[in-house]
């Protein structure tokens, strides 16, 4: 399937249904369980690692214009972002701003795009 119909089917089947199933389960479970089991710990670990893998892919194989920056700049900027997050008392916003500003700064110094 191609075109807009295919895109809509993909979004609904591989995007909406696959996501909503966990939200549905959440409502269902909210009425009966305490959410601190070993299974949930494992699920938490897998979900965390998956998002980390997603970030790593976006850094190693970046989309669009992000690919014009150097790999070292992306890795370095991300590390500085995490450092800033802790330096500024675990502020997510500070970390994100630091990461993006660092990418700009490092790329500019390296004479990037």
């Amino acid at each position: 399937m191609t075109g807009i119909a295919g895109l809509i089917v993909l979004t609904l089947a591989a995007g909406w249904a696959t996501t909503y199933v966990w939200r549905f389960a959440g409502v269902y479970l909210a009425e009966r369980t305490a959410p601190d089991s070993e299974v949930l710990m494992w699920v938490r670990a897998v979900a965390t690692a998956l998002v980390a893998a997603l970030v790593a892919r976006l850094i190693v194989a970046p989309p669009g214009l992000l690919a014009t920056t150097a790999l070292e700049a992306r890795v370095g900027a991300m590390a500085l972002g995490v450092a800033a997050f802790y330096v500024f008392g675990r502020q997510t916003g500070a970390g994100v701003v630091a990461a993006v500003v660092s990418l700009f700064g490092i790329s500019w110094v390296l004479g990037g795009p």
Partner: peptide, 16 residues
């Protein structure tokens, strides 16, 4: 490029 970088930065920092 920096604009695109916002999203992975946000994810990664949110993990921490």
């Amino acid at each position: 490029a920096c604009l695109i970088f916002l999203t992975p930065s946000f994810f990664f920092i949110s993990l921490f």
